[in-house]
Design a protein around this nucleic acid. Structure first.
Length: 263
DNA sequence: ATTGAGACCTGTCGGC
DNA sequence: TGCCGACAGGTCTCAA
């Protein structure tokens, strides 16, 4: 998409998690993508018009990118590809077709003007990028201070730090040796300074995310080598730790952790 | 303002 | 084999 122009925009339904904005296809057509960037879990297409194409995969969304030589419908029939949930099809000037497929429809596709981007309800208040230099122990401490929620819930809060989901919240806490049940504010001193666990957690978050990106881990989700996620009942991977991975429920989500080495 | 519960959807998997 | 409930990688809204 980057550098290419939208020649065609096909919507196969009127909504995903929310309705497509009015004139979505009309406003996109003819625009080119100046840059394609990521902010937290959002994909942003910066358009020549100044508008931004906001995309989110939700739980089950994904993009299929292929040469648009033949119609995707025909190609899919021939390859037995399941195209029941192809909701949006972008035909780009580069000769590629970009198809958004999302069975659960928790994804988002939105088009907003520049002045509304900063005020966007969720985008405008996202926490820092975890892999940026700006995300350090002091920054995390400031955002955890006075929060009466668990560390696990704090990591899932996109206002605390952007981009961490249910898998990597468990993974980072295990690597940092921190219990998912600990109070978020327990990593911060009375005066608001970071305690030791804060720096360990920052480094653990950066580490698990960098590794995940290199391995394209979630792309091969089922075969992935997570430290704790989906591994309840197995031996803890921490060197010298005799623990067994346990599973618990927190805020309606499953959490995986080692009761022995995470404190 | 902060917090947790429930809602939004479809697909898959394990147990019977 | 088929049916049924539980659960899934995210976020939004609502009520306390």
């Amino acid at each position: 998409m980057a550098g290419a122009r939208f020649d065609g925009v096909q919507l196969n339904r009127r909504d995903l998690r929310q309705p497509f904005p009015t004139g979505f296809a009309r406003r996109l057509k003819g625009q080119s993508v100046r840059a394609l960037v990521r902010r937290g879990k959002y994909l942003l297409g910066e358009l020549s018009s100044g508008d931004t194409l906001v995309m989110h995969l939700g739980m089950s969304g994904w993009f299929r990118v292929e040469k648009s030589k033949r119609s995707t419908a025909r190609r899919n029939r021939e390859t037995d590809l399941d195209n029941r949930h192809d909701h949006v099809v972008f035909t780009m000037s580069s000769g590629m077709t970009v198809t958004f497929n999302d069975p659960r429809r928790f994804g988002i596709m939105d088009l907003i003007t520049a002045d509304r981007l900063a005020r966007h309800a969720s985008l405008g208040r996202l926490g820092p990028e975890p892999l940026s230099r700006a995300f350090d122990a002091r920054t995390l401490a400031r955002r955890l201070a006075k929060r009466r929620i668990s560390l696990k819930a704090a990591l899932l809060d996109q206002h605390v730090v952007a981009g961490i989901g249910n898998i990597y919240a468990s993974e980072a806490l295990h690597l940092a040796g921190l219990s998912p049940f600990r109070l978020a504010s327990s990593l911060v001193t009375r005066a608001g300074a970071p305690r030791g666990g804060c720096e360990r957690l920052v480094q653990a978050i950066k580490s698990v995310l960098r590794r995940a990106i290199v391995l394209k881990e979630s792309e091969r989700y089922r075969g992935s080598r997570f430290r704790v996620y989906d591994r309840d009942g197995e031996r803890c991977a921490t060197a010298g730790c005799p623990g067994t991975i346990a599973r618990a429920w927190q805020n309606g989500r499953s959490t995986f952790y080692c009761p022995v080495c995470q404190r």
